[in-house]
Amino acid sequence: MSHPTDDELVDLALGEPVDADRSAHVEQCAVCSASVEQLRRTARLASGSESYAGWHAPDDAVWARVTAQIDADDPLRAEVPDTATAGTAYAPEPGPADATVTPISAGAARVTRRRAAAWGAALVAASLVVGLLAGRAIWSPDESGSVSQVALKTLDTRQREGEASVVRTGDGLDLTVVTDRPLDAGDGYLEVWLINADGKRMVSVGVLRPGETGTFPISQALIDQGYVVVDISKEQFDDKPAHSGDSLLRGQLPA
């Protein structure tokens, strides 16, 4: 005898009248009785949802953590080609105008996505080497000047629309952020963040006025602890100190 239809199984599960030979089959058939049991469980779970008390959205900052973590663990998006020059010396204390036109060396690993996929492992290894070399060159003490920089790109289209650079000053580090054109803050304002590569932690470094270059004091300790993702977010005047989750531009500092 053939199996009952889905409709008949539902009727059996709900205790509706069903032909006697159909219910006899289900009692004998492991597949059908499991099916009926699944349908009963579904009905039971649906009926128990009356104590449901509403949805709770996560804090907006969680989305920024998600994208930061995805960016951090994807070498194709981790700005390796653009930052491969980080170890080379720049003129000391470049002004904001210089920062926007600092040439990216043609020797930087300029790879297409397709090739990059094939060479993914090599790229990761290369970026580690670059990172180590850069790290040695960059973070040697008592040297002034630009030590690290990264293109800031939109999260969705990866369009380059600005740049962040870390400059060593007499008594610490300055993070300078410049955008190619004024960002639209809408009714709110722009805030600059350093997000940890673990995607879990972030610190606000200051407010950026649209169309202006922003320079913010940061510390070596922050960099050492992994706060290397520069992020510009659009914030509302809502008394919420956390990241809004609305990131406009982002880039990860090398090493």
Binding site: W55, H56, P58, D59, W63, V66, Q69, G199
Partner: peptide, 26 residues
């Protein structure tokens, strides 16, 4: 994310753990 967060919050009880789960899930 509200569905995921609410499930995690019900199961774990603290907002911090629930938001960590939301991050991990996405």
């Amino acid at each position: 994310s509200p569905l995921v967060h609410t499930v995690a919050l019900r199961a774990l009880g603290t907002r911090e753990d629930a938001e960590d789960v939301v991050q991990q899930v996405f």
